[in-house]
């Protein structure tokens, strides 16, 4: 157990990312309000980005921007640029998903005049019959 706590305190970025994932997941499950569900989804998004980026970080190295391009580039100077590039793609896709789900929310509100998902489901079922 003490071993585990030592590992967790070393990997605190990953631990916090997982806690954030749990918070986002539970608010996605338990909230009835659609806006809060979308915010929970965004929090989950951010936690996954945090988890991914923390793997690229290496102690004592700097961001991968070469100050002096004439000198030969040493790998030992810079952190791993690959997770950063992947997460950059992810953030923009996250914005697209947010905008799309907000547009769907507006349409649902326009039709049913409520944001409560349970009420929307009941109204939709009543309409179907």
């Amino acid at each position: 157990m003490s071993n585990a706590i030592a590992t967790w305190s070393g990997d605190y970025y990953q631990v916090f990312a997982i806690i954030l994932f749990g918070i986002g997941f539970i608010s996605l499950l338990l909230h009835k309000n659609l806006i809060k569900k979308i915010i929970g989804l965004n929090i989950m998004d951010s936690s996954v980005y945090l988890f991914l980026t923390s793997f690229g970080y290496i102690d004592g190295r700097v961001a991968p921007i070469v100050a002096d391009p004439t000198a030969p580039v040493q790998m030992e100077t810079y952190i791993n640029p690959l997770p950063t590039g992947l997460v950059l793609t992810g953030i923009v896709v996250g914005v697209s998903v947010t905008a799309f789900s907000l547009a769907l929310t507006q349409r649902l509100y326009k039709k049913y005049h409520t944001l409560n998902l349970d009420e929307i489901l009941i109204l939709a079922k009543r309409e179907e019959v």
């Binding site: 070393g10 990953q14 793997f55 290496i58 580039v73 790998m75 030992e76 791993n80 640029p81 997770p83």
Partner: peptide, 21 residues
């Protein structure tokens, strides 16, 4: 998982070497 921030983690491999150097 590998330790946070440690040099020589599995993510620091030949792909990163190629991209950086």
């Amino acid at each position: 998982l590998p330790t946070f921030g440690g040099a020589g983690n599995p993510t620091e491999n030949e792909v990163m070497e190629r991209y950086v150097e």
